[in-house]
Nucleic acid binder design. Structure first.
Length: 511
RNA sequence: GGGGCCGUAGCUCAGUGGUUAGAGCAGGGGACUCAUAAUCCCUGGGUCGUGGGUUCGAUCCCCACCGGCCCUACCA
């Protein structure tokens, strides 16, 4: 049996969950659901990143311990994911004991392999940011954010010898052409590596809220170095090694483009340094832009959309879980930036969900309920719809496999369109009850069944509802895809239920 | 300063190894009435950002420029 391990980044607890987080998480969820559907043993990991000075500061500001603070803020992400029906198998928090253990094991291995050394970090420090800048990233020696002069500081740190891994990384990229997708992002990573790699400081003495360095307890690891390792924590690295070898390295990380460096350069180098194969695939996605702008606190401060207005919970309350999932998956191709807007959601909702899918189910169930004695008839083996169905099934499956949910849904909707056209052409509403009518309606029901199967990774609730409305037992994912995707499997067992509209149209008032 | 991405029909975006550039939505016309004023059919000459270059020929290759954006070492 194939194993499929997919991860999202772990989200920084100081951020409030917003559509950007939801975008990544919903995509990972749909992909995980797809792989469960085809019968892969699947593990889907998400979680929260909880260390660092900013978290400690926020906790202090709120008068609680860092642990209490992260307990609270981490929970907001779980609530958001519950609202979006995210089927994660594991939710990792970097403050968990298992993570401390794996991080210490992993970095001890890197240390013992001679890739970590002690040096003095010289840097330009901004007191307001409490952070270092390089001369290049500064604004002529001034903080790019605060504009105040940076002060020369130095701190004794442990360094990771990233510079030693440029060649191995280039070789790895060469030998694994699909390591990073899409290709433009792969090129970016390669350009960065070719531009030369500097060693990176991976510990701090000035911060307490972090994972202690096992061989030097005055230091804690800097957040990013412990954060990346979460992917291994969840599969038992250093604790249950048989689990690790089951899920690694044939794994997939889904990450936003802004953290490409960490995942496509540092992380594979860190794995190599620990004597571990790097992950096999990093899928980079773009951003959802609102009014052409990145989602950020600054955007909110500038009077645009409030982040709280586009929190996952607010959106699912307004539009429903499946419509939001559908929109996030369908509107943008993974890898490119996309637009996010209420108008966009409404348009997708009304056209794709209400007019095409919802209306198809409504017209078919009505006819079957009134003219076919209530129970759905069987499809015809040689139906002309069967070829459209086979095409949709093939295209959708291929798209899901290549991390293209938008294309998978596009292909699926092709079958919906073909079915609507088929009904127009046959006009079953003009037919008297009998074999001819039954044949047409059986075909339409079969197409709807297939659509339910193909779309279930994206919109599981609605697909299950449709499944029962067309008189089937169980749910679309009960059978393995290889069987359920075959034309001709529909057999009505229960009477067809007309039911309320699946997606009542949204009317927009223009005020 | 350095590195990179993007700029294709009103809108959102595909696309190619260089020859006749596509889809959805919106718009226009028609058909139908089972259905959620839904559906189906027909309808797309847009300098493929600008200016050069390479070439028999470039939207796709090279250079420059303009515009939008990202990274530059803790924002999906």
């Amino acid at each position: 049996m194939a194993h499929y391990y997919i991860t999202t980044p772990i989200y920084y607890v100081n951020d409030a969950p917003h559509v950007g987080h939801a975008y990544c998480t919903v995509n990972a969820d749909a992909l995980a659901r797809w792989h469960r559907l085809v019968g892969d043993e699947t593990k889907f990991l998400t979680g929260t990143d909880e260390h660092g000075q900013k978290v400690a500061d926020a906790a202090a500001l709120n008068g609680v311990s860092p642990q209490e603070w992260t307990d609270r803020t981490s929970a907001r992400f779980r609530e958001a994911w519950d609202a979006l029906d995210i089927s994660y198998d594991d939710f990792i928090r970097t403050t968990e004991p298992r993570h401390y253990e794996t991080v210490q094991r992993f970095l001890t291995a890197v240390y013992e392999n001679g890739h970590i050394y002690k040096d003095v970090y010289h840097g330009l420090y901004c007191v307001s940011c409490e952070d270092y800048y390089t001369l290049e990233s500064s604004d002529e020696g001034r903080c790019p954010i605060h504009g105040r002069a940076l002060t020369e500081m130095q701190e004794e740190n442990w360094f990771f010898r990233l510079s030693a891994f440029a060649e191995p990384l280039l070789r790895y990229y060469e030998e694994h052409p699909d390591f990073v997708t899409p290709e433009t992002k792969r090129n970016e990573a390669l350009a960065f590596i070719r531009g030369g790699l500097r060693d990176i400081s991976i510990t701090r003495t000035s911060i307490a809220w972090g994972i202690p360095v096992p061989w030097d307890d005055r230091h804690v690891f800097y957040v990013w170095y412990d954060a990346l390792i979460n992917y291994l924590t969840a599969i038992g690295y250093g604790r249950e090694d048989d689990q690790t070898s089951t899920w690694w390295p044939v794994s997939h990380h889904l990450v936003g483009k802004e953290i490409l460096r960490f995942h496509c350069v540092w992380w594979p180098a860190m794995c190599m340094a620990a004597g571990l194969d790097p992950v096999h695939h990093v899928q980079v996605h773009g951003w959802l832009l609102v009014g052409g702008q990145k989602l950020s606190k600054t955007m909110a401060a500038e009077g645009g959309v409030k982040l709280s207005d586009i929190s996952p919970v607010v959106l699912t309350d307004e539009f429903g879980v499946d419509p939001i999932r559908y929109y996030l998956l369908r509107e943008t191709s993974l890898g490119n930036d996309g637009d996010f807007s209420h108008e966009g959601i409404t348009a997708r909702y009304n056209t794709d969900l209400a007019n095409n899918l919802g209306n198809l189910v409504a017209r078919v169930t009505t006819i079957v309920a009134t003219k076919c004695a209530g129970v759905g008839p069987a499809p015809q083996p040689g139906s002309e719809l069967a070829s459209a169905a086979r095409q949709a099934v093939g295209a959708a499956a291929a798209a899901w496999d290549r991390f293209a949910p938008h294309a998978a849904l596009e292909a699926t909707w092709g079958l919906i369109t073909a079915t609507n056209a088929y009904l127009e052409q046959r006009a079953p509403w003009k037919m008297s009850p009998g074999d001819e009518l039954d044949a047409v309606m059986g075909d339409a029901l079969e197409a709807i069944r297939l659509v339910s199967v193909l779309a279930t990774p994206a919109i599981p609730h609605v697909c299950a509802t449709i499944w029962s409305r067309i008189g089937l037992e169980g749910a679309p994912g009960d059978e393995t895809f290889a069987d359920s995707a075959q034309w001709g499997r529909y057999r009505g067992v229960h009477p067809i239920v007309k039911g309320e509209p699946l997606f009542p149209r949204i009317t927009v008032s223009d005020d």
